[in-house]
């Protein structure tokens, strides 16, 4: 058992060192101009979509909360960013913090209002809440109603700086989810995912665990949303609160593998690259993405990573508890 412990610790240290080297390398490459602006844009999108997807996966894949309303966090964060930077003249860090906090507060409010519902009722209720927010922002003079707002920051961050933020946000999302699932709460989440009633009857606090996941999801989706709108430069209610965001996120998680650590990341890479290629064939994008989703669901029902893990008996970033450690 002592040998196993030592081997496990060594393996963890090696993994952390390798990941740290890769992260450092990516940052060096980004800031030394090795990445072209087009490549930087693609990587930025991968990081942000992966962040959104990792958070949605935490809710749907572990907490059993299938939300169709995560665009509420993205839109709200975009507006928080525009208001903090343009209206009040604050910098990026304050915008990210406020964007995250506003979304976390929204998550708490929605949790108490909606979490008594289950399954599709919850999903539809979150969608309705997002639509209600969209309507409110379309008619709110302070945020320029339907005309939207531009994000003004002085000096405006370079592409490399925005990418660095997005990459950092993605890493934070991955680490937070990993640590959460490694905790006692995470053990309960995995039980809840399989059978919420049975989990409740052995002491798992379903509401508390779901609330925690929803708030974490709201906060980090909000931070990623702020970075997304810093990169875009402007926000409109129709775009910020569009269901399209959630459709993209669901596509990414489903093809990557719901309830897996690496699925949302692979899904984000596939989605972003497919989108880039299909941009040349305007009008066909959604058709091809739809076909890809159907094929993956039929052939690999647990997503690409989920099916591979099942087939070859491995688990990326495994949170499994061994009996003798």
């Amino acid at each position: 058992m002592i040998k196993n412990n030592a081997r496990s610790k060594t393996s963890t240290i090696i993994t952390i060192v390798v990941l740290a080297i890769i992260v450092a390398l990516i940052y060096v490459l980004a800031f030394t101009g090795v990445f072209s602006s087009n490549l930087m844009r693609i990587l930025l999108n991968i990081c942000l979509y992966a962040s959104f997807a990792v958070m949605w996966n935490l809710m749907a894949g572990y907490a059993g909360l299938t939300s169709l309303g995560n665009q509420a966090f993205i839109g709200l964060a975009g507006y928080a960013c525009a208001v903090m930077c343009t209206t009040y003249g604050f910098g990026i860090w304050v915008a990210m913090l406020v964007g995250g906090l506003v979304c976390a507060v929204l998550a708490v409010i929605l949790a108490f209002a909606l979490m008594r519902m289950r399954g599709m009722y919850f999903a539809v209720a979150t969608w309705v809440a997002a639509e209600a927010l969209k309507t409110a922002f379309q008619n709110w003079k302070f945020v320029k109603e339907g005309a939207g707002m531009t994000v003004k920051i002085k000096p405006y961050p370079t592409n490399a700086e925005i990418f660095a933020l997005a990459f950092g946000c993605f890493i934070v999302c991955m680490v937070v989810v990993y640590l959460l699932l490694k905790s006692k709460t995470g053990l309960g989440l995995k039980a809840m995912r399989d059978d919420a009633d049975a989990a409740s009857s052995i002491g798992v606090n379903i509401f508390g665990s779901r609330l925690l996941c929803y708030v974490v999801c709201g906060f980090l989706t909000g931070v990623a949303g702020v970075i997304m709108y810093i990169s875009k430069g402007s926000i409109f209610p129709g775009g910020g609160f569009a269901i399209d965001w959630t459709i993209k996120i669901v596509f990414i998680v489903i093809i990557g593998g719901i309830g897996t650590a690496a699925g949302p990341v692979l899904g984000a890479i596939i989605y972003t690259l497919l989108y880039e290629v299909l941009a040349q064939f305007a009008g066909f994008t959604n058709i091809v993405l739809g076909i890809v989703a159907i094929v993956v669901i039929v052939v690999l029902p647990k997503g690409i990573i989920g099916s591979l893990e099942n087939r070859f008996k491995f688990e990326i970033l495994s949170q499994r508890r061994k009996s003798l450690e």
Binding site: L187, A191, D194, I202, R320
Partner: peptide, 24 residues
């Protein structure tokens, strides 16, 4: 109603941690 995505050990561990309030 076992938690099918977990091992037998994890099924019992989750009860010890949440029901009995123990640390892992």
């Amino acid at each position: 109603r076992p938690f099918e995505g977990m091992t037998v050990f994890e099924n019992v561990l989750v009860a010890c941690c949440h029901g009995a309030g123990m640390t892992e």
